[in-house]
């Protein structure tokens, strides 16, 4: 990938890395489908969401190239993620203890 970075704007990876990421995503999908067949009890939800989180991390970082973009975008992203987290957390203070 190195030479491509020099040829084009530094923050854009080439075809190869996209295809690699795509293959990774397919692999993760097959893992999550396989794992879903196994009964993990309380961990089922956790494992499924963990894999989904890894997949979305790949998409956000590489496909959406936030990894190569302006740093402020990462701040924005964590801000909205944190807001979501707070909303969930506080709502569940009601739901769990009701």
């Amino acid at each position: 990938m190195e030479h491509e970075k020099h040829e084009h704007k530094a923050h854009h990876p080439g075809y190869g890395i996209y295809i690699l990421v795509w293959m990774g995503l397919l692999a993760l999908t097959s893992i999550t489908v396989t794992v879903a067949g196994i009964d993990l009890g309380a961990y089922t939800l956790f494992v499924a969401l963990l894999i989904a989180a890894i997949k979305s991390g790949l998409v956000i970082n590489i496909f959406m190239h936030i990894k190569f973009d302006e740093p402020i975008f990462k701040v924005f992203l964590s801000l909205s993620g944190f807001t979501l987290f707070v909303i969930f957390l506080l709502t569940f203070f009601d739901v769990i203890y009701r």
Partner: peptide, 22 residues
């Protein structure tokens, strides 16, 4: 501002835990 919305709901029947936290 995001942390306090449920103070509109102190008598709504939500949990007492949520009530004092909010």
């Amino acid at each position: 501002g995001y942390l306090v919305w449920a103070h509109h709901m102190f008598v709504s029947g939500m949990s007492d835990t949520a009530t004092w936290i909010f």
